[in-house]
Protein backbone atom coordinates (compact mmCIF):
# COMPACT_ATOMS: atom_id res chain seq x y z
CA UNK A 1 0.00 0.00 0.00
CA UNK A 2 2.80 2.40 0.88
CA UNK A 3 4.54 1.60 -2.41
CA UNK A 4 1.34 2.42 -4.20
CA UNK A 5 0.97 5.76 -2.50
CA UNK A 6 4.60 6.60 -3.28
CA UNK A 7 3.86 5.84 -6.88
CA UNK A 8 0.77 8.01 -6.63
CA UNK A 9 2.81 10.87 -5.24
CA UNK A 10 5.24 10.44 -8.12
CA UNK A 11 2.49 10.38 -10.72
CA UNK A 12 0.72 13.26 -9.01
CA UNK A 13 3.90 15.30 -9.02
CA UNK A 14 4.47 14.54 -12.69
CA UNK A 15 0.89 15.52 -13.49
CA UNK A 16 1.20 18.83 -11.66
CA UNK A 17 4.46 19.55 -13.42
CA UNK A 18 3.03 18.75 -16.83
CA UNK A 19 -0.02 20.83 -16.00
CA UNK A 20 2.09 23.85 -15.08
CA UNK A 21 4.08 23.49 -18.27
CA UNK A 22 0.91 23.20 -20.34
CA UNK A 23 -0.85 26.21 -18.88
CA UNK A 24 2.16 28.24 -19.90
CA UNK A 25 1.44 27.09 -23.44
CA UNK A 26 -2.04 28.59 -23.75
CA UNK A 27 -0.70 32.08 -24.26
CA UNK A 28 -1.65 33.18 -27.69
CA UNK A 29 -0.81 36.36 -29.44
CA UNK A 30 -2.77 36.40 -32.65
CA UNK A 31 -2.20 39.51 -34.71
CA UNK A 32 -5.12 41.90 -34.27
CA UNK A 33 -6.76 42.12 -37.61
CA UNK A 34 -10.06 43.93 -37.40
CA UNK A 35 -11.82 45.82 -40.10
CA UNK A 36 -12.77 49.28 -38.96
CA UNK A 37 -13.76 52.50 -40.57
CA UNK A 38 -11.68 55.23 -38.95
CA UNK A 39 -14.16 57.88 -40.17
CA UNK A 40 -11.67 60.49 -41.20
CA UNK A 41 -13.33 63.53 -42.78
CA UNK A 42 -16.85 62.31 -42.14
CA UNK A 43 -19.36 64.75 -40.63
CA UNK A 44 -21.51 61.91 -39.34
CA UNK A 45 -18.59 60.79 -37.19
CA UNK A 46 -18.74 63.89 -35.02
CA UNK A 47 -19.81 62.84 -31.53
CA UNK A 48 -23.58 63.06 -31.05
CA UNK A 49 -25.98 61.89 -28.41
CA UNK A 50 -24.90 58.79 -26.53
CA UNK A 51 -26.02 55.49 -28.07
CA UNK A 52 -26.17 52.14 -26.29
CA UNK A 53 -25.98 49.32 -28.83
CA UNK A 54 -26.93 45.81 -27.76
CA UNK A 55 -25.07 43.16 -29.75
CA UNK A 56 -25.77 39.46 -30.09
CA UNK A 57 -24.06 36.92 -32.35
CA UNK A 58 -23.66 33.15 -32.14
CA UNK A 59 -20.71 31.98 -30.07
CA UNK A 60 -19.42 29.89 -32.96
CA UNK A 61 -15.83 28.82 -33.31
CA UNK A 62 -15.52 29.67 -36.95
CA UNK A 63 -13.08 32.38 -37.98
CA UNK A 64 -15.76 34.35 -39.81
CA UNK A 65 -18.10 34.60 -36.81
CA UNK A 66 -15.11 35.40 -34.62
CA UNK A 67 -14.31 38.28 -36.98
CA UNK A 68 -17.93 39.49 -36.85
CA UNK A 69 -17.77 39.97 -33.08
CA UNK A 70 -14.28 41.45 -32.99
CA UNK A 71 -15.17 43.85 -35.84
CA UNK A 72 -18.27 45.02 -33.98
CA UNK A 73 -16.20 45.66 -30.85
CA UNK A 74 -13.45 47.45 -32.76
CA UNK A 75 -15.86 49.67 -34.70
CA UNK A 76 -17.76 50.59 -31.53
CA UNK A 77 -14.41 51.54 -30.02
CA UNK A 78 -13.98 54.13 -32.78
CA UNK A 79 -16.91 56.21 -31.46
CA UNK A 80 -16.78 58.13 -28.23
CA UNK A 81 -20.59 58.24 -28.13
CA UNK A 82 -21.22 54.49 -28.48
CA UNK A 83 -21.48 51.97 -25.69
CA UNK A 84 -21.57 48.34 -26.86
CA UNK A 85 -23.41 45.80 -24.72
CA UNK A 86 -22.23 42.35 -25.81
CA UNK A 87 -24.35 39.35 -24.92
CA UNK A 88 -23.09 35.84 -25.50
CA UNK A 89 -25.73 34.10 -27.55
CA UNK A 90 -24.83 30.67 -26.17
CA UNK A 91 -25.02 27.53 -28.20
CA UNK A 92 -28.35 27.58 -30.04
CA UNK A 93 -31.34 29.59 -31.19
CA UNK A 94 -33.24 29.07 -27.93
CA UNK A 95 -30.41 30.46 -25.80
CA UNK A 96 -30.07 33.41 -28.14
CA UNK A 97 -33.81 34.09 -27.81
CA UNK A 98 -33.40 34.18 -24.04
CA UNK A 99 -30.35 36.44 -24.37
CA UNK A 100 -32.34 38.84 -26.59
CA UNK A 101 -35.19 38.94 -24.05
CA UNK A 102 -32.70 39.96 -21.35
CA UNK A 103 -31.19 42.51 -23.71
CA UNK A 104 -34.61 44.06 -24.44
CA UNK A 105 -35.24 44.44 -20.71
CA UNK A 106 -32.03 46.46 -20.45
CA UNK A 107 -33.48 48.92 -22.99
CA UNK A 108 -30.54 49.69 -25.26
CA UNK A 109 -31.13 52.35 -27.97
CA UNK A 110 -30.73 49.78 -30.72
CA UNK A 111 -29.91 46.07 -31.12
CA UNK A 112 -27.55 44.56 -33.67
CA UNK A 113 -28.24 40.86 -34.05
CA UNK A 114 -26.68 38.11 -36.09
CA UNK A 115 -29.24 35.38 -35.45
CA UNK A 116 -28.45 31.67 -35.33
CA UNK A 117 -31.22 31.27 -37.79
CA UNK A 118 -33.26 34.12 -39.26
CA UNK A 119 -36.51 32.16 -39.16
CA UNK A 120 -36.09 30.97 -35.58
CA UNK A 121 -35.16 34.41 -34.22
CA UNK A 122 -37.77 36.30 -36.28
CA UNK A 123 -40.13 36.55 -33.29
CA UNK A 124 -37.32 37.93 -31.12
CA UNK A 125 -36.76 40.66 -33.71
CA UNK A 126 -40.46 41.58 -33.75
CA UNK A 127 -40.51 41.60 -29.94
CA UNK A 128 -37.64 44.09 -29.80
CA UNK A 129 -39.17 46.30 -32.50
CA UNK A 130 -42.48 46.33 -30.61
CA UNK A 131 -40.64 47.33 -27.46
CA UNK A 132 -39.50 50.38 -29.40
CA UNK A 133 -35.93 49.19 -29.92
CA UNK A 134 -34.88 49.22 -33.59
CA UNK A 135 -33.15 46.03 -34.76
CA UNK A 136 -30.26 45.80 -37.18
CA UNK A 137 -30.45 42.31 -38.67
CA UNK A 138 -26.98 41.17 -39.58
CA UNK A 139 -26.41 38.66 -42.39
CA UNK A 140 -28.93 35.89 -41.62
CA UNK A 141 -32.20 37.46 -42.75
CA UNK A 142 -35.44 37.66 -40.78
CA UNK A 143 -38.32 36.65 -43.06
CA UNK A 144 -40.63 39.34 -41.67
CA UNK A 145 -39.95 42.97 -42.57
CA UNK A 146 -41.54 43.95 -39.25
CA UNK A 147 -38.67 42.28 -37.39
CA UNK A 148 -35.95 44.74 -38.41
CA UNK A 149 -35.23 48.39 -39.02
CA UNK A 150 -32.17 47.62 -41.13
CA UNK A 151 -31.04 44.42 -42.73
CA UNK A 152 -27.41 44.24 -43.81
CA UNK A 153 -26.21 41.01 -45.30
CA UNK A 154 -23.86 39.30 -47.68
CA UNK A 155 -24.81 37.82 -51.02
CA UNK A 156 -24.43 34.04 -50.99
CA UNK A 157 -25.99 33.51 -54.38
CA UNK A 158 -23.83 36.35 -55.72
CA UNK A 159 -20.77 34.66 -54.29
CA UNK A 160 -21.47 31.54 -56.33
CA UNK A 161 -22.14 33.71 -59.38
CA UNK A 162 -18.84 35.56 -58.96
CA UNK A 163 -16.87 32.34 -58.51
CA UNK A 164 -18.56 30.72 -61.50
CA UNK A 165 -18.07 33.78 -63.68
CA UNK A 166 -14.35 33.98 -62.81
CA UNK A 167 -13.78 30.26 -63.45
CA UNK A 168 -15.83 30.36 -66.67
CA UNK A 169 -13.96 33.37 -68.02
CA UNK A 170 -10.54 31.94 -67.13
CA UNK A 171 -11.25 28.57 -68.73
CA UNK A 172 -12.72 30.20 -71.82
CA UNK A 173 -9.63 32.39 -72.14
CA UNK A 174 -7.46 29.27 -71.89
CA UNK A 175 -9.60 27.64 -74.56
CA UNK A 176 -10.61 24.61 -72.47
CA UNK A 177 -13.71 23.19 -74.17
CA UNK A 178 -15.06 20.65 -71.68
CA UNK A 179 -13.40 21.40 -68.38
CA UNK A 180 -13.48 19.24 -65.24
CA UNK A 181 -14.68 21.52 -62.44
CA UNK A 182 -14.72 20.56 -58.77
CA UNK A 183 -16.63 22.17 -55.92
CA UNK A 184 -16.09 21.91 -52.16
CA UNK A 185 -19.10 23.23 -50.29
CA UNK A 186 -19.58 24.08 -46.64
CA UNK A 187 -22.22 22.51 -44.40
CA UNK A 188 -24.70 21.13 -46.90
CA UNK A 189 -27.82 21.47 -44.77
CA UNK A 190 -27.45 25.26 -44.55
CA UNK A 191 -29.48 27.45 -46.85
CA UNK A 192 -26.45 29.64 -47.54
CA UNK A 193 -24.52 26.65 -48.90
CA UNK A 194 -27.39 25.80 -51.25
CA UNK A 195 -27.57 29.43 -52.46
CA UNK A 196 -23.83 29.52 -53.12
CA UNK A 197 -23.99 26.29 -55.11
CA UNK A 198 -27.00 27.47 -57.11
CA UNK A 199 -25.21 30.69 -58.02
CA UNK A 200 -22.12 28.73 -59.04
CA UNK A 201 -24.09 26.32 -61.26
CA UNK A 202 -25.99 29.19 -62.87
CA UNK A 203 -22.84 31.15 -63.69
CA UNK A 204 -21.08 28.09 -65.11
CA UNK A 205 -24.12 27.27 -67.26
CA UNK A 206 -23.61 30.58 -69.09
CA UNK A 207 -20.37 29.09 -70.42
CA UNK A 208 -21.94 25.69 -70.97
CA UNK A 209 -19.85 24.21 -68.13
CA UNK A 210 -20.99 22.09 -65.21
CA UNK A 211 -19.64 20.78 -61.93
CA UNK A 212 -18.04 17.34 -62.31
CA UNK A 213 -17.83 16.53 -58.61
CA UNK A 214 -19.06 18.29 -55.50
CA UNK A 215 -18.07 17.36 -51.95
CA UNK A 216 -19.55 18.97 -48.86
CA UNK A 217 -17.25 19.73 -45.92
CA UNK A 218 -18.15 21.38 -42.62
CA UNK A 219 -16.40 24.79 -42.57
CA UNK A 220 -13.54 23.32 -40.52
CA UNK A 221 -9.95 22.96 -41.66
CA UNK A 222 -9.82 19.21 -41.25
CA UNK A 223 -13.26 18.82 -42.83
CA UNK A 224 -11.90 20.75 -45.81
CA UNK A 225 -8.77 18.63 -45.91
CA UNK A 226 -10.75 15.38 -45.97
CA UNK A 227 -13.31 16.56 -48.53
CA UNK A 228 -10.53 17.83 -50.79
CA UNK A 229 -8.61 14.55 -50.49
CA UNK A 230 -11.74 12.68 -51.59
CA UNK A 231 -12.42 15.11 -54.42
CA UNK A 232 -8.86 14.98 -55.76
CA UNK A 233 -8.97 11.19 -55.71
CA UNK A 234 -12.30 11.21 -57.58
CA UNK A 235 -11.02 13.62 -60.22
CA UNK A 236 -7.54 12.50 -61.31
CA UNK A 237 -7.42 15.48 -63.65
CA UNK A 238 -9.13 18.76 -62.88
CA UNK A 239 -9.21 22.21 -64.49
CA UNK A 240 -10.74 24.38 -61.80
CA UNK A 241 -11.95 24.16 -58.22
CA UNK A 242 -14.20 26.37 -56.14
CA UNK A 243 -14.02 26.07 -52.38
CA UNK A 244 -16.84 27.93 -50.60
CA UNK A 245 -14.91 29.01 -47.54
CA UNK A 246 -11.36 30.27 -47.01
CA UNK A 247 -11.19 28.95 -43.46
CA UNK A 248 -11.75 25.37 -44.57
CA UNK A 249 -9.60 26.36 -47.56
CA UNK A 250 -6.49 26.08 -45.38
CA UNK A 251 -7.28 22.36 -45.16
CA UNK A 252 -8.14 22.19 -48.86
CA UNK A 253 -4.79 23.71 -49.83
CA UNK A 254 -3.00 21.32 -47.46
CA UNK A 255 -4.73 18.35 -49.14
CA UNK A 256 -3.73 19.65 -52.57
CA UNK A 257 -0.09 19.92 -51.41
CA UNK A 258 -0.25 16.44 -49.90
CA UNK A 259 -1.62 14.99 -53.15
CA UNK A 260 1.06 16.91 -55.07
CA UNK A 261 -1.49 18.29 -57.52
CA UNK A 262 -1.14 21.57 -59.39
CA UNK A 263 -2.72 21.12 -62.83
CA UNK A 264 -5.75 23.29 -61.93
CA UNK A 265 -6.51 26.66 -60.38
CA UNK A 266 -8.64 27.26 -57.33
CA UNK A 267 -11.02 30.00 -56.25
CA UNK A 268 -11.79 30.57 -52.57
CA UNK A 269 -14.68 32.14 -50.72
CA UNK A 270 -15.11 34.79 -47.99
CA UNK A 271 -11.80 36.64 -48.38
CA UNK A 272 -9.72 35.69 -45.35
CA UNK A 273 -6.36 37.31 -44.72
CA UNK A 274 -4.56 33.99 -45.24
CA UNK A 275 -6.28 33.55 -48.62
CA UNK A 276 -5.47 37.10 -49.76
CA UNK A 277 -1.83 36.59 -48.72
CA UNK A 278 -1.64 33.34 -50.71
CA UNK A 279 -3.19 35.01 -53.77
CA UNK A 280 -0.69 37.88 -53.51
CA UNK A 281 2.28 35.51 -53.21
CA UNK A 282 0.92 33.49 -56.14
CA UNK A 283 2.81 30.32 -55.15
CA UNK A 284 -0.17 27.99 -54.78
CA UNK A 285 -3.14 26.94 -56.91
CA UNK A 286 -5.35 29.52 -55.16
CA UNK A 287 -5.66 32.33 -57.71
CA UNK A 288 -8.76 34.20 -56.55
CA UNK A 289 -11.36 34.43 -53.82
CA UNK A 290 -14.88 35.83 -53.84
CA UNK A 291 -15.72 37.97 -50.84
CA UNK A 292 -18.28 37.54 -48.12
CA UNK A 293 -16.79 39.98 -45.73
CA UNK A 294 -17.36 40.14 -41.97
CA UNK A 295 -16.68 43.86 -42.38
CA UNK A 296 -20.51 44.01 -42.49
CA UNK A 297 -20.40 43.89 -38.67
CA UNK A 298 -18.38 47.10 -38.58
CA UNK A 299 -20.80 48.74 -41.01
CA UNK A 300 -23.76 47.47 -38.96
CA UNK A 301 -22.41 49.21 -35.84
CA UNK A 302 -21.84 52.49 -37.75
CA UNK A 303 -25.34 52.36 -39.24
CA UNK A 304 -26.93 51.36 -35.92
CA UNK A 305 -25.37 54.48 -34.39
CA UNK A 306 -26.75 56.65 -37.21
CA UNK A 307 -30.23 55.14 -36.87
CA UNK A 308 -30.25 55.72 -33.12
CA UNK A 309 -29.11 59.31 -33.61
CA UNK A 310 -31.68 59.84 -36.38
CA UNK A 311 -29.02 60.58 -39.01
CA UNK A 312 -28.89 59.40 -42.62
CA UNK A 313 -25.99 58.20 -44.77
CA UNK A 314 -24.22 61.36 -45.85
CA UNK A 315 -23.81 60.42 -49.53
CA UNK A 316 -27.48 59.60 -49.98
CA UNK A 317 -30.31 62.09 -50.35
CA UNK A 318 -32.54 60.32 -47.83
CA UNK A 319 -32.58 61.65 -44.30
CA UNK A 320 -32.58 58.19 -42.76
CA UNK A 321 -30.55 55.01 -43.24
CA UNK A 322 -32.18 52.71 -45.87
CA UNK A 323 -33.93 49.54 -44.78
CA UNK A 324 -31.90 46.93 -46.64
CA UNK A 325 -28.29 46.69 -47.71
CA UNK A 326 -26.78 43.72 -49.52
CA UNK A 327 -23.03 43.71 -49.92
CA UNK A 328 -21.80 42.73 -53.33
CA UNK A 329 -19.49 39.74 -53.58
CA UNK A 330 -16.27 40.97 -55.11
CA UNK A 331 -13.58 38.91 -56.78
CA UNK A 332 -10.10 39.29 -55.32
CA UNK A 333 -7.25 38.36 -57.65
CA UNK A 334 -3.53 39.03 -57.64
CA UNK A 335 -4.17 42.32 -59.45
CA UNK A 336 -6.37 43.90 -56.79
CA UNK A 337 -5.25 41.92 -53.73
CA UNK A 338 -3.28 44.85 -52.28
CA UNK A 339 -6.43 46.96 -52.24
CA UNK A 340 -8.36 44.28 -50.33
CA UNK A 341 -5.55 43.39 -47.93
CA UNK A 342 -7.01 45.56 -45.17
CA UNK A 343 -10.39 43.84 -45.54
CA UNK A 344 -9.00 40.35 -44.99
CA UNK A 345 -10.01 38.82 -41.68
Amino acid sequence: MSALSRRRVLFGGAAVGAGALLTACTSNNPTENTQVNTNEGNDNAAPGEKVVIGFSAPAADHGWIGAITSNAKAQAGQYSDVELKLTEAGADAATQRAAIATLIAEKPNIIVMLPYDGKELNAAGIQAMQAGIPVVNLDRAFPSAAAYRLQIKGDNYGMGLAAGAYIGAQLKAKGVSSPVIGEIAGIDSLELTQERSQGFTTALAVYGFKVANRRAADFTVNGGQQAATDLLQALPKMDALWNHDDDQGIGVLAAIDQAKRSEFFMVGGAGSKAAIDTITKDDKVLKATVTYSPSMASSAISLARLIAQGKGMSDLVELQVPKEIMLSSETITKENAAQYAKLGF
Binding site: T220, I250, G251
Partner: peptide, 15 residues
Protein backbone atom coordinates in the same frame (compact mmCIF):
# COMPACT_ATOMS: atom_id res chain seq x y z
CA UNK B 1 -2.14 13.69 -37.17
CA UNK B 2 -5.10 15.95 -37.99
CA UNK B 3 -3.18 19.14 -37.25
CA UNK B 4 -0.48 17.96 -39.60
CA UNK B 5 -2.99 17.03 -42.31
CA UNK B 6 -4.81 20.36 -42.16
CA UNK B 7 -1.61 22.31 -41.28
CA UNK B 8 -3.78 24.01 -38.69
CA UNK B 9 -6.17 23.45 -35.82
CA UNK B 10 -9.37 25.03 -34.62
CA UNK B 11 -11.95 24.52 -31.89
CA UNK B 12 -14.44 22.97 -34.33
CA UNK B 13 -12.11 20.27 -35.62
CA UNK B 14 -12.83 16.53 -35.36
CA UNK B 15 -16.53 17.30 -35.24
Amino acid sequence: MLTSQATSAQAGMAN
